[in-house]
Simulated assay, not measured.
Amino acid sequence: MSSNAAWPPDVVLLHIGINDLNDNLSAGAGDRATALVNRIFADRPGVTVIMQGLLPNTPGWPAQSDMSGEITTYNNKLRQLQASEQQAGNRFSFVEGPALTSAQMNDGLHPNDSGYALMAQNFSTALDQAYTDHWFTGGPASTSWPTPPDTVRLVNRTPDGGLHNAEGDYAAKRWSTWSDLGATGIKEVTSAATGSVNHIFAIGSDNRVYEKDGDYSTGQWSGWFQPENSPTATTITASSGCGQTVHLVIVGTDGHLYNSDGDYAAGHWNGWTDHGGGTWKRLASATTADNVNHIFALDGNNQLQELDANYRTGNWSSWATPASGFTGTDGTAAANGDTVHLGAIGTDGNWYNAEGNFDASTWTN
């Protein structure tokens, strides 16, 4: 499985190993299953993996004398794997396989339709729990192709507070014309994509957050509206997308940093979390493939600071100085895999950039 696949999975369901045991390859079978799980997490950080144990009373094909001991040993290995994977911050769960009767088996290894229905029910229960725990957002199957990977969607705020957008197709080496988004008096703007939909967030003249969505698979745009639980007063804002979720960050007129997450598959936003005060001047945000939202801000001394939210574990870091420290007047951030590309304007008016490889925990200036 490649993390660069056109349709990367949100959830992987596994039920493997019985053929090895049936072929007298039980030695190391649990270790091979563990290696496969770790490979999936390496290729697709943040994915949910649900593994169903082997059916405890599988007779084998041709019928074996007794595989129950080997099956128990294998399943115990996978039960222990759940604790170690979750401790490492991975979304892994083990679900028991049902004990089927001979009437629910098609042969010595494979269930018939009634047996598979019981296995599916066990997977369904585990999927429901993973969804409840916000391990994945889910949603209906997409009927459109993925957004072209070499396309940039750019939103421009004009001096009079109007908004225009354009799309740059870097594969075809062309840009679209600018389109008027029908807004006036806009103070700040940011955008983030979920699949084919680009979500534009703007701060109006009344210091409230407004949203306008463009679905590039259908060519349809929404009108302007206020997101659910939208704050009443904001000054600066930044956003980034991960899957079907947008992470939105604002600074209120009280100087505090707030964040909220919009789950577009479920159709709702969670509440706003207050992360304390500070004389923040500018914000930037990028979410890496491991589902960590990296928030960058310039403080009252124009010093660049970073705050990380790990959505796999639910933990937030403390504010820290990234990239060996930087003093500037504005900045932007974008993520590719586990790397954040950070750009900023220095106090000397020059443009600077740095790359943060969060897999290797290094910055390159």
Rank of each mutant, 00 (worst) to 15 (best):
P98L: 12
N350W: 05
L109I: 13
L55V: 11
N291R: 14
K173Y: 12
G328C: 01
N353W: 01
A193H: 06
T158S: 13
A130G: 10
D254P: 09
N293K: 01
H110V: 08
G46M: 05
A6I: 07
D150V: 02
L257D: 02
G219Q: 08
N350T: 09
F94S: 02
Y216C: 03
S124Y: 10
G277D: 01
A172G: 11
S26I: 12
S65V: 10
G331L: 12
D299K: 00
N357P: 03
Y210L: 01
F296G: 00
Y116I: 08
A5E: 12
W280N: 01
P98A: 14
G243F: 06
L304A: 01
G337A: 07
E355T: 09
A360Y: 02
I200N: 14
D338M: 14
G325Y: 06
Y131E: 03
L78V: 07
N270T: 05
G300V: 01
F94T: 04
S191Y: 04
S317T: 12
G223I: 03
H164M: 10
S179E: 13
L127D: 01
P45R: 05
N165L: 10
I250Y: 03
T132H: 12
L25I: 04
Q121A: 09
D338P: 00
L54K: 06
Q87H: 11
N4D: 03
H199S: 03
G161N: 11
